[in-house]
Design a binder for these strands. Structure first.
Lengths: 255, 255
DNA sequence: AGGCGATACTTTACGCCATAAGGAGATGTC
DNA sequence: GACATCTCCTTATGGCGTAAAGTATCGCCT
């Protein structure tokens, strides 16, 4: 299941994302909070990382914190908002790991490549991120910072402003899409215990059985499959590299 | 929620996709089937088109056919397989609508653009497709045909085989990713009754409130936002166009 | 003609899910 | 000490996919 996010109460969600000032602690009665938003977000990420998005339930998160599911609702309006927070927190790994120094000269190709590599790796560390809806972006600080850093990397390329939006979209979607493919393949391999290679072999055999005219109907596909050095096992890094090169070439051509 | 597919029993799924020969009808007792796989797939698509992926339940599909949810299990192993079938059926719209004539000369840019436009439109007609997992592709006939037709469009470009995989991935992921963004924006607008423009306005205002140092922290983003002709309302077609141009330029540069 | 096995479909049930509603106990201010 | 407030719990509602088992219907065979 893909999980919707960015669907929650916009006001509360944004406030939580940007660390809105909590209500003043003075003059409040009642027991002290035993939990906090950060801890809940961390627990959520831990669950999702370890057991995947489909295992991420309010119960599971609560359990990890020694609480019931309902306890979380004191701190977070609902699951959608929790997802927003998790997504932005995970994305924040990108900026924290980076060198704080000045941007690396004018080599924008290297800079964009580094950006793409970082994002790709982040998605693969947290595959559940790929199941969070992307439209109407959550607009958390980390998401905006990631965008800003891509723009910074692209700056020396001198793209005309009109093209910038398209460039950003193409790059981001490519990284995200390829990460999704890679992540899903890994997940499937892990779940079924079948390697990618075996799986393709199996499917190919069955396809040949079900569609005897396969090579006639899909000649170019057949050719593609045979030109590559063997089955597409672990072809993902390669595909990522060449796709990115194509994108960079396209950017270069755009002035 | 993103919905997993391609997770079902591979054997039955593939057989259904490729229209495996049903067991011989002669010599079978029992009541005649009142349903068939095609009808179920159509009903599923109707439900998903009309009410979105989150409303697609076995109960809902059964109801549309005047049956209970459990009746479907006579024809289809489970929900995952039904999703696979729905996805491939929807993708089949691409090839049925096309001119049957020979490929259009050597203008590969036009051909690829046509392919991308068609796929983009298909995704927007059936936004639920974007919530179907993409790794370990289902390998239904329509999916393979779509791939084949992209390869056919790309052929005159004369890409070296080593680059083909990356090119296909970059194009497909870009189209899919941008379609997802567009579709989600539309869905959110429809659900909340807030136009994209209003929504952005609202969020911008709140962002400025929550992060007063916004323009300092994100100077390039701020610049990007102001260069565009107004808010990004309906900027999707534009973004799609320019992103695609960049990709095509990149392909051209790759020989 | 009658019976029997296969098949289509239903009902029921199980264990999940998110979360609404309301209550219990702890903690602070007055 | 009274009371308001806050955390966290229990319970309940209405959903989900689907396992299991029951019922009704049909076709073949004796």
């Amino acid at each position: 299941m893909t999980v919707y996010a960015g669907q929650g109460d916009a006001r509360r969600s944004l406030a939580l994302l940007w660390g809105a000032p909590e209500r003043p602690r003075t003059g409040r009665s009642g027991p002290k909070p035993g939990l906090n938003v950060d801890a809940i977000v961390s627990a959520g990420i831990a669950v999702a990382d370890a057991e995947g998005m489909e295992a991420l339930s309010m119960r599971a998160v609560g359990e990890r914190l020694g609480r019931t599911a309902m306890a979380l609702y004191t701190y977070v309006p609902g699951k959608a908002e929790l997802l927003d927070l998790m997504h932005d927190r995970a994305l924040a790994e990108l900026s924290t790991g980076l060198p704080a120094g000045p941007p690396p000269a004018d080599d924008w190709r290297a800079a964009v490549t580094a950006w793409a590599d970082g994002l790709y790796a982040c998605y693969l560390r947290h595959p559940w991120m790929l199941r969070v809806s992307q439209a109407r972006p959550v607009l958390g600080p980390a998401e905006l910072a990631t965008m800003e850093s891509l723009l910074r990397a692209l700056r020396p390329a001198g793209l005309p402003p009109r093209r910038l939006r398209g460039a950003v979209a193409a790059l981001w979607q490519f990284v995200r899409g390829l990460a999704a493919t890679t992540a899903d393949a890994r997940a499937a391999a892990a779940a079924t215990g079948v390697t990618d290679e075996d799986w393709w072999h199996d499917r190919s055999a069955r396809l040949a059985e079900l569609a005897p005219d396969f090579t006639d109907r899909f000649p170019l596909l057949t050719a593609l499959q045979s030109t590559a050095d063997g089955p597409p096992q672990d072809s993902h890094p390669d595909t990522f590299r060449t796709g990115l090169t194509i994108l960079l070439d396209g950017l270069a051509a755009s002035c």
